[in-house]
Design a binder for these strands. Structure first.
Lengths: 218, 218
DNA sequence: ATAGTTTTGTGAATAATTTCACTATAAAAT
DNA sequence: ATTTTATAGTGAAATTATTCACAAAACTAT
């Protein structure tokens, strides 16, 4: 029913609604939203109908009410705490990135095996020894983790995360991870994202598929 | 015919073949490859047949020949030069990331508006004033660019890139970009990738869709 | 040689996703 | 009040993507 693609669209609707709301709009029609996100109006309505979201015939959707519903569906009413494993390039960039906090995602800590990276200063995201991942995650009810280690270490880190009760993973290591227990792994491969573009440019197909939103994609 | 999802799979096959090759394997069967990438064997064969790649009945595929063909299709026989606009968190992390070079992608330069970031040292990726983007791209035949600026600036940067002859874009800004001319835009939204995982965890659906490879994000 | 086995290549079948097209309804206009 | 108009909601149709299943080919063993 609700597959990943559909959820990504809901998240995009949510983001577009945020912008519209902050611009002072009060209501929105399916085709405004469609245009903001780059899909068709019937796609928007289908998605909403799938989740029992309804608006007013001829009146569109009330933005505030719609945002409220989407936030509820998407689990955005409570702040989500996340850990990162790997304090290298990607991990460090994610820690500094402001985009997460804006969306109610709190990066609670980062873990690394390199003592040179350890760091614990008030107001900053702490970088802790990897051995502490399990206790920390248990103590703080962390359910979501980001893997930002080299591919060679990724599988081990995943196993450690799973044993720490983490069930949702964003994996930046360019390797297929094998999971025994039930979990949700979202692989993000930065090089692949670039290589995809290279393919379409080298093969001169930029007209055929003008714009693609990942994932749609993925 | 060849959509983004299919290309992403080809890229994954290529990566898996690299690994197999470096482990000393000479030939591979569709189901080995399928397993390495997390798809079905018939998907592998279908993908190959779409590109006229054929193996030997009963003998599988010769890894070297297959890699050669895939690299050709994927435009990996020539090194691709890429520019980044935005030397902030994400831009800086991408510059330091080793994964691109490994895959024959050369980050030729980064551009920013902040003079404090300018930097030109032998052996390092230079960070140049944004005004130079156009000349640089023209002079170096750059066709691919990465947008790593805040969302508010992204549309302007895109327009500048297009005017500089760049047609393939990886966009990290969390905003829908509008393109007049024909180009290929691949949107990568890091927050969205995390929020997707949050949805599945909060809604306890990790069993239903155990693992998804992004396109399958996107 | 011949028979048996394995694996590719692919048309057909199935499944998933998106779009169409039309009904019902609420708002606006008369 | 009545008519007009615009838009949501939604089954049906179309499209797209994946899997099935089997014939053809090639290797192995006898």
């Amino acid at each position: 029913m609700a597959n990943k693609k559909c959820i990504i669209r809901l998240l995009r609707y949510k983001n577009a609604l945020h912008r519209l709301h902050s611009l002072g709009f009060v209501k929105v029609f399916s085709d405004n939203l469609a245009d903001a996100v780059g899909v068709t109006a019937s796609q928007v309505r289908k998605d909403f109908s799938l989740f029992g979201i309804c608006g007013n015939k001829r009146g569109g959707y009330q933005i505030e009410a719609l945002l409220e519903k989407l936030n509820h569906i998407l689990g955005k009413n409570e702040q989500q705490k996340v850990v990162i494993v790997g304090g290298g390039n990607i991990g460090a960039a994610l820690m500094k990135y402001k985009g997460f906090e804006k969306e109610g995602v709190k990066i609670a800590a980062c873990f690394d095996i390199d003592p040179a990276k350890y760091h614990h200063k008030e107001g900053d995201i702490p970088v802790l020894p990897l051995e502490e991942l399990k206790n920390f995650s248990r103590a703080n009810h962390i359910r979501i983790g980001i893997i930002a280690v080299p591919d060679i270490a990724a599988q081990q880190v995943l196993d450690l995360m799973l044993s720490a009760g983490i069930k949702g993973i964003v994996n930046f290591a360019p390797i297929r991870l094998r999971a025994s227990s039930d979990c949700f792994i979202n692989n993000v491969n930065l090089v692949l994202e670039l290589e995809t573009v290279i393919y379409f440019i080298v093969n001169g197909l930029e007209k055929s598929i003008a714009e693609i939103h990942e994932e749609q994609k993925s």
